[in-house]
Amino acid sequence: MTDLPGRPSRRGFLKGSVASAALLPLAVPAQAETLPDLPPLDQYKPQYLTAPEWAFVMAACARLIPSDGNGPGAIECRVPVFIDRQLAGAFGKAETWYMEGPFEPAADPRLGYQSPLTPAEVYRKAIPLFDAWCADHHGAGFAKLTAEKQDAALTSLQKGEVGLAPEQRDFFSLLLQNTKEGYFADPSHGGNYKMQAWVYIGFPGARGAFPEWAGRENVKYPLGPVALDGKRA
């Protein structure tokens, strides 16, 4: 491997990083959130989502971050697993949110989330309604549509054209936000399988020590990502 411009040598750099790594406490796996090796998607047993909801989330993720083209898709990154686990946990239950009434879900969106529903409940209520809308307008439930029709349906959902009640109006933004979170979050949360999304864009994960790299001009950082459990890709 060629030496990097402006650096003594790549070997020097690696030595340096080993030395500074030795000063850091050993990488202990993040306790509660660490997953045992997850089964592939088709064998995963959802904790929160029902079978039809799971089918919807699988199909929607596959369009929001599709598999074709450069880079992994949401399916290769096992984003649906991430979403299921988030909905089963504190996020899905809005555990840290203020959820006292009265509620005014139709308020100006700039006043923030005002639905009485938790994120998990939004998914539960909105998925069948959206599926029914898809059946009405495109001839079948979302998961059964062609990719083209799925994209058209998601676009309508995003534009607020599918007639969801104000309580569920944030469904699309939650779904999209959660999909991107699952794509890019540390793999211990269930998505970003094998750090593929990080490898794709060039994010080195939890390396977190770059003192020699500040000020270097137009030199791409050469090392791949490290996850919270110490694995490398």
């Binding site: 850091l24 406490p25 990488a27 202990v28 993040a30 959130e33 979170e181 890019f184 979050a185 540390d186 211990s188 949360h189 994960g205 939890a206 977190g208 490290v226 919270l228 110490g230």
Partner: peptide, 10 residues
């Protein structure tokens, strides 16, 4: 502490 602090989602 390292590495738990580097959890963007959390």
């Amino acid at each position: 502490q390292y590495p738990d602090a580097f959890d963007e989602l959390k």
